[in-house]
């Protein structure tokens, strides 16, 4: 494979001002806009019920946008579903496959729809996953079901692989299989992966781009490097114990107590440093927070704001 920059400007999927309501009260997606660059691994993170699955279903054309636009491969999934779906390999959250079907039947059934289906690759995956072709799906474990679903999503070598919570409730071995599949997919030139997950260290491992959704709103959407560069975690020490958290400009979350505090900031690091010094605290350590820290800090601020 060749090296290539992730800032390849071709776009595979594009969502613009997407809003979706269920009923009158539930706002599943609120003015979400994002772009999935070609050849990238795009991680969609957010707590349960944040709207990740709803977003993916819009990309698949299962939901019609109430307002805003959705484009996949430059087409609308509603208007040209067969064009869009031909290029997508999809693994659903609950691996919903009919229990009566056998694995070879499932493979035979699925291959009929994709002209690019690769029989040797399907065979290879079947062997790698150690799946019995005669086994009925209802006799499979959750992990095997995910593997069977993954096989049908991968074997036509789709330009866009959509994985909805692929690792939820699976053991480490199957999770490895799934991550490996993601890596092999992007390692093939020009193919793109979009996956949602709440396992943040997994996302941090494989994702180039991250979109963080919280209660239907897009909180953060950038490349992982940019996110990492932007956020800082500062460890403070003060001589006189503080009784309440200090106000630091750009702070997403302030944790700790007494003499020792940790501040997670976004962007304006210089301002934060000056503010901390004027408060009379010393900065012991300045590190890059992990994605999990950022996620926790982000959702933390949200709740504080709502209280205020």
């Amino acid at each position: 494979m060749s090296e290539r920059t992730v800032a390849d400007h071709e776009t595979v999927a594009e969502v613009e001002g997407l809003t979706r309501r269920f009923g009158r009260t539930t706002l599943a997606l609120d003015n979400v806009s994002l772009r999935v660059p070609k050849g990238s691994v795009f991680g969609l993170v957010g707590e349960n019920g944040a709207g990740k699955t709803t977003l993916i279903k819009h990309l698949l054309g299962q939901y019609k946008p109430q307002s805003g636009t959705v484009r996949v491969f430059g087409e609308s999934p509603i208007e040209a579903p067969e064009k869009v779906l031909a290029g997508i390999g999809y693994l659903s959250e609950d691996h919903d496959l009919p229990g009566w079907m056998r694995i070879d039947e499932l493979i035979n059934y699925t291959q009929a729809f994709y002209p690019d289906w690769d029989d040797t690759y399907a065979e290879h995956l079947l062997k790698t996953f150690e799946l019995q072709p005669e086994a009925k799906i209802k006799t499979l474990s959750r992990g095997q079901r995910a593997q069977a679903g993954l096989l049908t999503a991968l074997a036509h070598r789709p330009p866009l692989l959509l994985l909805d919570e692929p690792s939820a409730g699976l053991d480490a071995v199957v999770r490895r299989d799934i991550l490996g599949a993601v890596i092999r997919t992007v390692a093939d030139e020009g193919r793109t992966v979009l996956f949602s997950s709440h396992l943040l260290d997994e996302v941090e491992r494989v994702a180039d781009y991250i979109a963080m959704i919280s209660k239907g709103k897009l909180v953060l959407c950038d490349s992982l490097d940019a996110i990492k560069a932007k956020h800082h975690s500062l460890t403070l020490h003060v001589e006189q114990p503080w009784t309440k958290p200090p106000t630091v400009p750009g702070a997403l979350a302030v944790t700790g107590g007494g003499r020792d505090w940790t501040v997670v900031t976004d962007g304006r690091i210089e301002e934060a440093r000056t503010a901390i010094r004027t408060l009379g605290a010393t900065i012991l350590e300045e590190t890059t927070p992990s994605l999990e820290d950022i996620f926790v800090a982000r959702s933390g601020r949200r709740s504080i704001l709502e209280e205020g």
């Binding site: 290539r4 992730v6 691994v41 490895r176 490996g180 890596i183 992007v186 390692a187 494989v206 180039d208």
Partner: peptide, 8 residues
């Protein structure tokens, strides 16, 4: 593939 991280 060994480290299970993004090739990029």
């Amino acid at each position: 593939e060994k480290l299970l991280i993004n090739p990029n």
